[in-house]
Amino acid sequence: MKNVAVPLDDRTINDLKAGDEVLLSGTLYVARDAAHKRGIPVDLKNQVLFYAGPTPGKPIGSIGPTTASRMDPFTIPLLQKGLKGMIGKGARSAEVKEAIKKFKAVYFAATGGAAALLGKTVRSAEVVAYPELGPEAVLKIIVVNFPAIVAYDIYGGDAFAEGVKKYREA
């Protein structure tokens, strides 16, 4: 288990390999479908986006990853602007996977449905945009020891493809 500070710097990113289990601590931005469609009005340079829509609570209720591929059509322009990490569930499109490699970013998979457990890692949460979107508002959250797995790294590693290949029976 590797401890990783977020936002991410290049040295940290260079060390992350697909399949690594990590504990993230620091600041994350939370955004999903509706906010991606409108545009996320936050400087995302070096930041990590967590694709999620939490339940209400203090500082937050339950929060877990939603399907990342729904954000694929909006992701490459964000990577071009310096976004360095994403947390979600599931595989990404070939284009996004390639862009992650090109722009030296990392995609983390978190456990879908482990939202009560993940909510416990959140120390603070504030709405930074689109409060009217309710569960789809953009949030800034601070987490301590948020568990995730490196799904795609800058070397083209893919924890999904490699994992499934290992256990697939003809």
């Binding site: 399949g19 289990e21 999620a52 829509g53 939490p54 339940t55 609570g57 209720g61 339950s62 929060i63 877990g64 939603t66 456990t111 879908g112 449905g113 482990a114 939202a115 009560a116 457990l117 909510g119 416990k120 569960p135 568990p147 797995i149 924890a159 994992g163």
Partner: peptide
């Protein structure tokens, strides 16, 4: 990794029940 995920899910269910938190945010 699979076993660790299953452990997380079992622990998640315990936390949810004890603290009356939704099992999943969805």
């Amino acid at each position: 990794i699979g076993r660790n995920i299953l452990r997380e899910l079992i622990k998640n269910a315990e936390i949810a029940k004890k603290e009356k938190l939704p099992i999943c945010q969805d």
